[in-house]
Amino acid sequence: MRHLLALPLLFAGPAFAQDHATHDAHGPSHPMPMASDQPEDDGESKAQAPGEDTVTLDHRMMNHGAMEHEPMDHGSMQHGSMGHADMDHSGMGHDMTMQHGATATPSTDSIPKAPPPPEAFSGPLHAADQFLGEDVMAASREEVVREISGMPVFWFMADRAEYRARQGKDGYLWDVQAVYGGHVDKLWLKSEGEGSFGEKPESAEVQALWSHAIGPWWDVQAGVRQDLVGPSRTHAVVGIQGLAPYLFEVDASAFVSNKGDVTGRIEAELDQRITQRLILQPRAELNLAAQDIPELGVGAGLDRIEAGLRLRYQIRREFAPYVGIAQEWRVGQSADYAQAAGEDPSVTNFVAGVRFWF
């Protein structure tokens, strides 16, 4: 770079060299000398054109063979003293255009203007159809549309439908629920009962509840409960049902009967996934009463405790047989009522059943 900048000094004479030194010292505010200010040469240089403010080099005097063409080291150039912007390129005879870091701009002619080729639309409309099948994905999309559209849906689940092997007569138990409605308000039906084979059920009830979502995890419920066996009782019900922290499914209800009896029930269960299909479910249930109810064999305070452990295998998510064990205790005055009726206040049940929903 220095060799190229020195060429005008060699051929322009001492006056040009002096002014160029001034240019280096003071920057671009000092213009390069006019050709008319230069001393006359030996006659071999070209005459300066009128009105031309550039220095013209005579190529006949330049020994191109002797010129050393060294690569320019842009990193070593001191841009602080004289950068590319400070150089008056118009004063050079050569049209030296230095493209330092220039980037080519793509032409708009390179952008395709034709529509996509037909092959772009040869695949399925939905990519998942190619892997899971059109029938499976069509049913899944219909279910999503139904759920997010706010239309009422129906859901039924038999949480426990089981055979109970125990000392004495074997028995049975059912615990089913059905829901109809939307995401916020719905009709919730519940029924549960148990008994021994060959005898009338020991207990049976049905509940009809209005359920209102108070958050993403909880529903508050209110309605009526009707006992189907034993002394006739109709109860007003208020409760809460949902998913507690750590994924405990909780159902807690308070009952007030038409006889003025106040009772309560708390149920909790937890699904512990062992594998994708094998699930261990611990479950507990507490029954309480605010007073003695002799005709029902219920004592005040804690009436009955049930704790169980069930292991189920999901053949499908909607259908899962299980086996397990359930222990029942009558507590306090309720135990006395059971013994007076010839019943054992503590019963162990080996259970086998099925859990299904649709």
Rank of each mutant, 00 (worst) to 15 (best):
N258Y: 06
L286S: 00
P71E: 08
G168T: 09
V176Y: 07
G51S: 06
M157V: 11
V145S: 15
G239K: 10
L5D: 10
G101M: 13
I325M: 05
A161W: 15
T275C: 06
I325A: 07
H212M: 05
G324R: 03
A290E: 12
F11H: 13
M137V: 15
E343V: 00
P231V: 09
M98Y: 10
M92H: 13
V262T: 13
D24P: 00
T54Y: 13
D227R: 07
P28V: 00
P71Q: 08
A284C: 04
Q281M: 12
S107C: 08
S29C: 01
V224T: 09
P321H: 02
H235R: 11
R233H: 13
G80N: 14
K259G: 08
A102V: 14
A338E: 01
P8F: 04
P50C: 00
A85N: 11
F255T: 04
F156T: 12
L247G: 03
A244M: 10
W174P: 04
F16E: 01
D86H: 14
T105L: 11
A254L: 14
A268F: 07
H64S: 12
L187C: 02
E285R: 08
S232L: 14
N258E: 04
N287G: 04
K46E: 03
S36N: 04
P31M: 04
P124Q: 10
E267L: 00
Q314A: 15
K200Q: 10
I266H: 00
